[in-house]
Design a protein around this nucleic acid. Sequence first.
DNA 1: GAGAGATACCTTGACAGGTGAGGTATATGT
DNA 2: ACATATACCTCACCTGTCAAGGTATCTCTC
Lengths: 115, 115
Amino acid sequence: MSVASELIRGNTETIILAQLMKGDGYGYMVNKAILNLTGGRFELKEATLYTAFRRLEDAGCIVSYWGDETTGARRRYYSITDLGKESYRLRKKEWETAEAVIDKLLAEGEIGGSK
Amino acid sequence: MSVASELIRGNTETIILAQLMKGDGYGYMVNKAILNLTGGRFELKEATLYTAFRRLEDAGCIVSYWGDETTGARRRYYSITDLGKESYRLRKKEWETAEAVIDKLLAEGEIGGSK
DNA sequence: GAGAGATACCTTGACAGGTGAGGTATATGT
DNA sequence: ACATATACCTCACCTGTCAAGGTATCTCTC
């Protein structure tokens, strides 16, 4: 089953930050990494990806630099900043809170259940 | 910690359906139930709530009727339809898929880990 | 009986994130 | 020459959320 992007919304930047926690990367690569990690169930749209990078850079969470490729298309690499790392940890906590809340709200409740 | 609504987005209708799975209810009550279930950490804004009810009714997931209160403010009750129940189950599965995917993507990965 | 607060519903305009559709450029394989 | 993959970018549009406004009823206090 593929993933409804409406449900991912709001997590895009956190997902990108999580990937950059592992090391510098460029847009196309980050997206392929996401595709691989999810077994093809999820992929960011390019427009979403690049606008998210832009927002993160404007916010000071990441910095970018051009790679020195001598062959192939140019690559803009991104590196997470200390502020970005801090932001990642906060966002991840927020996600975990939201996750618990939604899980609770989506439970039908123990109708006829034992507890 | 309260919950960032950006992370709830897309789950509003499912949350409402989940509450109606327990029995008919009216808007104000459903919202208070959500507030209680989350220990005050989350509450739908009224505009969000009523537009969601509208969408669900337009989609045939719920039907509404006016209560016969002889006192107090009038209440519009909502009842989940068979289509709504089916939709609830599907949406819940979609949420569970999305949840698993995001959890995976937000994990930093076993940097220096054993596997 | 005037006022405050809770209950209960509704609408409008604005906002923000996501996306389809378009563009540019380089390299490789046929 | 053409298709495909890599790699980046931008714009207009769509959709769900929400602040801010509104209506109406009931209860409690002064």
